[in-house]
Design a protein around this nucleic acid. Structure first.
Lengths: 188, 188
DNA sequence: GGCGCTCTAGGACGACTGTCCTACAATTTT
DNA sequence: AAAATTGTAGGACAGTCGTCCTAGAGCGCC
């Protein structure tokens, strides 16, 4: 098998395991088992566990950019695009109830570990923040665009943590509805 | 030194370390070093790491109950008491920016570890939830008290995650102000 | 066939983990 | 003073961790 395909398999497995069980709690053996490779052989593809994390974050950044670009084509209005983001917590409610938000939980964990890759993980948040800010600017609120973007991010993180803690789908739906109404007050 | 004092020292040190570095990332050696005891000797006081976590959660539950009772005496109105909760993110902003919310981050971590003590940690959330629900009921919104309580909890968790990720004090202040205005619409 | 490159298996390594045990100091009780 | 209790130190234990090394399989190219 070509190295690139194996590398992608490793990244995909690590991505899933980091999300489900956390970075620290996922061992090389776990990833190796998921891909079907021997443990020691990993150093041909990645020279350290940090390098895998780096690749996982890069992959998530690329996936996120792809998703945001797709939203640009699917939703015609900035408000519609913002709602696309808000509704992630509904779309991914099953995973969120089980594992929380992939971005939020990773950032929280890396902060506690004082991990060198924390800054890299922060770029995931910044990517959403910048995109949301642009949507609010297009909506005609350039002056407070960043504050509104941060508010929407905080909404999603709050819902994710609570949904993970209480496994309450009705709660998620209510909060999304509340957010939709809030967003209407900013539409012109 | 009597055992009870040593035990309390261990719980206090473990509480702080679990909050700062996470449960899994904190080892017996770390706690022992913080208290100034030998590693192996812990089994005289706690028979397992889970037992320490259990004691830490119990201590946090007791501290939280004390805090909530104090709020009952300090704030005359239910709205004032709810604002006391909302303003935690401001009062504890330094710790929150560094380590996030003690309750939220612990629950998130234990969920990923599929740890048996996850249910115990959930009681911390439930304690706040029940208390907030009671305040909203006293405010005259008995019918939606639980939904409103969950909304306030989600607010605090969202702010905590974002403040931890971006270290933005102005953001915390803005969100608290936003929450104060929101709460005014529910006052009679 | 022989060479070189890509990829892999398997194990060794030192460090660290939670757990447990035993011997001993300190203190209290008899 | 002797005995019993309470608390401690230090190390052994089996296991796991991330890391690294070596030998060799599979393959295209000369």
């Amino acid at each position: 098998m070509p190295a690139v395909a194996t590398r992608e398999q490793i990244v995909a497995a690590a991505d899933r395991l980091f999300y489900h069980h956390g970075y620290e709690h996922t061992s090389f053996a776990d990833i190796a088992g998921a891909v079907g490779l021997s443990r020691g052989n990993f150093y041909y593809h990645f020279k350290s566990k940090d390098a895998i994390l780096d690749a996982v974050i890069d992959a998530r950044l690329a996936d996120t950019r792809r998703m945001l670009e797709q939203w640009e084509t699917e939703a015609a209005t900035p408000a519609g695009r913002i709602m696309r983001y808000v509704e992630i917590v509904l779309t991914n409610r099953a995973d969120i109830q089980d594992y929380g938000c992939p971005v939020g939980t990773l950032t929280t964990e890396l902060a506690k570990l004082e991990h060198a890759m924390l800054g890299q993980a922060g770029r995931l948040f910044t990517l959403f923040r910048t995109w949301l800010r642009e949507q609010f600017a297009q909506l005609g609120h350039a002056e407070h665009a960043d504050e509104l973007a941060m508010h929407v991010l905080a909404f999603s993180q709050g819902v994710a943590v609570m949904a993970n803690a209480f496994h309450d789908e009705a709660f998620i739906q209510r909060e999304v509805d509340r957010m939709r109404e809030w967003l209407h007050t900013y539409e012109r």
